[in-house]
Design a protein around this nucleic acid. Sequence first.
DNA 1: ATTATATATCGTTATTTTTCGATATGTCAA
DNA 2: TTGACATATCGAAAAATAACGATATATAAT
Lengths: 104, 104
Amino acid sequence: MDLIDVFKALSNKTRLNILQWLKDPEKHFPKQGAHLPKEVSYKGGVCVGDIQEKSQASQSTVSHYLNMMQKAGLLESVRYGQWTYYRRNEEFIRQVAEYLRTEI
Amino acid sequence: MDLIDVFKALSNKTRLNILQWLKDPEKHFPKQGAHLPKEVSYKGGVCVGDIQEKSQASQSTVSHYLNMMQKAGLLESVRYGQWTYYRRNEEFIRQVAEYLRTEI
DNA sequence: ATTATATATCGTTATTTTTCGATATGTCAA
DNA sequence: TTGACATATCGAAAAATAACGATATATAAT
């Protein structure tokens, strides 16, 4: 776990928002899931386009953010056809919190 | 609590090191405390010069780092004469960890 | 008062990050 | 197989951060 990359990924309002939105996708992306049955899409996360729309940043910026967060370990992604769904890596986030609590 | 500033302050190896060194000053700054009685200096934290020496960054950089971490809330400082002692703000750090665990 | 020491601040340059538009790639539908 | 759409990647410009030496400020010692 490269903590520096994790904290860098968290050092941005939009990225922090995305992470928190993904905590409750039904709430923050109510109209998503047109592409796939609800069970699948919510379990799989939220697609880039929906996140981009909500975040008000450009498509390339959001794609870059998501990739950065995934590399840091905070997110994971699944591809369904032409869509990439991003969701939180809860276990990793838990570990970061625990590390911060005990080692920092 | 401005989380962004907290995470920015944590996004640097040297600053992270400093925070961890200050968790156990006796261990990481064994020869410090020449200026003041041990009880006082350890309770009050570690002076800038000792931190600077250990961190191998320039004096101005370390001073800047410490100020940044203090502004973020992670550190607090006390001045004894010409020395400024920095120590961890444990309560704040605990709150950050708790916030990360539950809200992020 | 002068000098020495510790820390803070200033000004500058180098580096990194941010952010975007343009373009490439990959997938689906007609 | 062509066209439409979703996402990723590229390249560049702007903005922010990092890091230093020089200098200022504050305190202490002579």
